[in-house]
Amino acid sequence: MSEAIIAEKAKVVDEVAENLKNAATVVVIDYRGLTVDQVTQLRKELRESDSKMEVVKNTYLRRAADKVGYEGLDELFTGPTAILYSESDVVAPARIGKKFAGQFETLKLKGGIIQGEQASLEEIDQLASLPDRDGLISMIASAIQAPVRDFAYVVKAVAEGKDEEPAA
């Protein structure tokens, strides 16, 4: 094998390792059986949520995972493998992967990495059930606003009660 080919393969492994290292979440999927249109639809939805999908040779994935220090992922890197990942959104790759696995029975989630830790399929499912970033912000804002709103209702009720004169 020529040195140019070896250098090119090493470059691919380095790029994949960098993506694994910088990703907030990585979901490993088996995409066997998906049509080109279905893969295009998956990639489009991932792009809209600032996530990506890459199809990478399993040997490159194994070497990249070893390079970054993720051990025990070799069993995930068998068969047709793709990774869904995002550097900014922890939930999006898992949520979108689970959604598409439900729509297309040929797509299978295998496992992944959540914030630098190996995650089982069950943990990926739990992560996928969380609301997206905007939903979480809305829930927090509602929780913060609730005591103020309740206090306003009490003040209003007291003010309305004082305006009424007691019946004699």
Rank of each mutant, 00 (worst) to 15 (best):
A4M: 10
A4V: 12
I5N: 05
I5K: 10
E8L: 02
V13M: 01
D14W: 00
D14G: 01
A23C: 07
V27K: 08
I29Y: 00
R32P: 14
V36L: 08
D37G: 08
Q41E: 13
L46M: 04
L46A: 07
R47N: 14
D50H: 05
K52Y: 14
K52L: 11
N58L: 02
T59G: 00
R62D: 04
A64P: 00
A64Q: 01
A64S: 10
K67L: 05
V68A: 03
D74A: 11
L76H: 04
F77L: 12
P80R: 13
T81A: 06
E87Q: 11
V90N: 02
V91M: 11
A92E: 06
G97P: 05
K98D: 13
Q103Y: 01
F104C: 04
F104Y: 00
I114E: 12
I114L: 01
E117N: 15
Q118Y: 01
A119W: 00
L121V: 00
D125Q: 00
S129A: 14
D132V: 10
G135P: 12
S138P: 03
S142Y: 05
A143T: 13
D150W: 04
Y153V: 12
V155N: 09
K156D: 14
D163A: 08
D163L: 03
E165T: 09
A167L: 02
A168T: 11
